[in-house]
Design a binder for these strands. Sequence first.
RNA 1: GGCGCUAUCGUCUAACGGUUAGGACAGAGCCCUCUCAAGGCUUAAAUACGGGUUCGAUUCCCGUUAGCGCUACCA
Length: 522
Amino acid sequence: MPRVRFAPSPTGFLHIGSARTYIFNWLYARHNRGTMVLRLDDTDVDRNSDASVTSIFEGLSWLGLDWDEQYRQSDRLALHRAAAQAIFDKGRAYRDFNLAAAAETTERSGAAGTSRHGPMRELPREESDRRAAAGEPFALRFRVPEVAGHVGFADAVYGEVSKAFEDIEDFALLRSDGMPTYHLANCADDADLRISHIIRGQEHLSNAFKHQLIFEALGAESPTFAHLPLLMAPDGMKLSKRVHGPVVSVTTYRDAGFLPAAFINFLCLLGWSPKNDREKLTREETVELFTLEGINRANAVVKFTDEEPFDPKALWLNAEHIRAMAPDDLARELVPFVGPASRPVPSTSDVGQASRPVPSTPDTPPQATLPADSLAGSSISRHDESPADPALLDKLRHITPLIQERMKLLRDVQTVADFFFADQLPPYDSAELIPKKGDAAMAKSVLVKAREVLATAEFTHDGLDAALRAASVELGIKAGQMFEPVRVAVCGRKTAPPLFGTLEVLGRETCLTRIAQAIEKL
RNA sequence: GGCGCUAUCGUCUAACGGUUAGGACAGAGCCCUCUCAAGGCUUAAAUACGGGUUCGAUUCCCGUUAGCGCUACCA
């Protein structure tokens, strides 16, 4: 049974790169019926923030991805210290009393021929013990073997990789304040939690050699590493909030109306392929198809621009998922995006200003955070704060079939179906009412005729179809010339969902009123 | 600078050493059609460069170039 973990350091909002790493771990765990561990690597007390923890939980909860065990690295300090002690006792680490060593090392780098090790490496044990006993502060450094040789391992993605001992500096295990460094805490925890596969970003590939060394020194069996290619911005740079803005935050996607399943689909296709040309995948299908062998090695770029903040493929995938939904399910997802009260506020996604309700607290057991049915496809959304207005939901159920294949994002409901919700149509140019190859007079006669016909027509798709077509024949014009003025009168614009269904949903009264108003304009 | 990793259409990607180098998104065009979509069809578009190995390299090896990552008592 594989055991994998996602170990974010809570120093910022949930980044889409982190989300992708989580997804790969989760897919591997679920595909192999293994265990997913969530561990908050909050070793860096100065940079940690509760808002960040909140952002991580909020994001994962939206995605509906669960986990089986949860830990906080800061709770495990004793374990880390014991690990450091064990390495020291084996002579694989030494005390470095030179607190300025880091600076010196940096200055020395580049100067060929100088040792990569600090000056304290050869300090006699007796002197080291004496100075430590006297209370002199020190950092504990790993003693990288000085013999010629390599550390290496078979990465599940990159294959055999190795690095010469002489290219690895004596890295710190414990800081001079006694706190463990990332490398130590990370490995001690992975060993203790019996993590079998470390699936993480490629930025850690170089660190993995150090980690391999630590696992060996600890006498622990080292896990299988699987490093993931990185996500890049179109400018070739690594994705960062600082330079790329909200596009790197998962809340941005949620607030714009991405479906969790589509977002997961998009992210997992960045650096992984099922190899059979399939693109649109449900979560269940992805779990079924996922293997480490399908992961490739080159970095992937997420396309976005200032004008179009979302990758076109992500948009297409979202549209595909939207079209694949049962209309009633879609209607439910749409509720939060209509109505002034519940409309989601476009968030700038800065965790610093996160103030909305948090679906879970860090210490809530995952079971409570994510009900079992969250995996069955029902997504969790922060918008579901209050029970949906039944009347609104019912209305949406009728509208959904008309707009389902005209949306890329859930929020598009606001632009594509606005006229269903407006009491009064926003002003439009009366010239819009004039049909192709027609004039104002034709528009007027069409609308007058429509008003007459619609007053008595059977208000169903087929009834309206028949009535309006018959009317066009009577007027001696093309059907299109008949439909166009009616559409504009009723929708306020030329581009709209199919006419008959639209009229039906709008209802006789509203249609007649709007047509009368249009006639006034001519 | 040192070390590590990577390199197929604009982007995401496929191709046991043998294919007209495939698919998808985005683009262009056509069809369908009450507008817009959706759908169907067509089209343009790639193996970074140079050497090997081989009967034969996108594929294996070496070099070059480029990109990314690491190079902290950050993670």
